[in-house]
Amino acid sequence: MSRQRIFDAIRRNRPPPVEHPGSIPASPLRFSDPLASFIEAVKSVGGQAESLASRTQIPALLKQRFPEAKIVSSLARGGPPSTLDLENNADPHDLAGVDLAVLDGVFGVAENGCVWVPEENMRWRALPFITQHLVLIVPAAATVPTLHEAYERLAAALSALSYGVLISGPSKTADIEQCLVIGAHGPRSLLVALVPE
């Protein structure tokens, strides 16, 4: 059986033990203002960022930003009303027409504009990708400096996770002559709305 053959070969061939270098030391990459750096990073990866005084401002912001959106799927706390029933929806293929998805992100990462979105915040894994436009609502105070801190923060949650994604900007491609095109197969835009909590 291949499994046994592979393990036999590995045990025969493996080098002498080498120690794991251990946990990662605090990164010298420091941010005096992680939130400002996060916002800058979101913009640099093709996203937009907006700071709100409260979640109650979310519907108005989205109305102003996405006046054309017909099919809206919102799972975010304080988000706009959904025009698509996600909870009783039985098949992700029905999401094909979604114009705007509004989801809660857990935290942002200052160095690269990432937002962590676990499966429980999206109901369907397809939703943040199949939607034409994606809005992530992220607590401003939850920003971490680098991915090291991000994984420290996630340490307890990861083993219970089904699926989760770090999202940095809208979908993009540069496969045609290195020209950056925003909106490859996934969302054409990403708006990160920062809220107090």
């Binding site: 990866v45 990462v109 160095e111 504009g113 991915l147 990861l158 994604v165 940095s168």
Partner: peptide, 24 residues
């Protein structure tokens, strides 16, 4: 954290890829 910080910067000069998906 170590590998993702290295990968996209080395590959395309992005700070990270747009999507880093964790399938469990």
């Amino acid at each position: 954290g170590v590998f993702l910080r290295l990968l996209a910067r080395s590959a395309t000069g992005q700070p990270v890829t747009a999507y880093t998906s964790h399938f469990l």
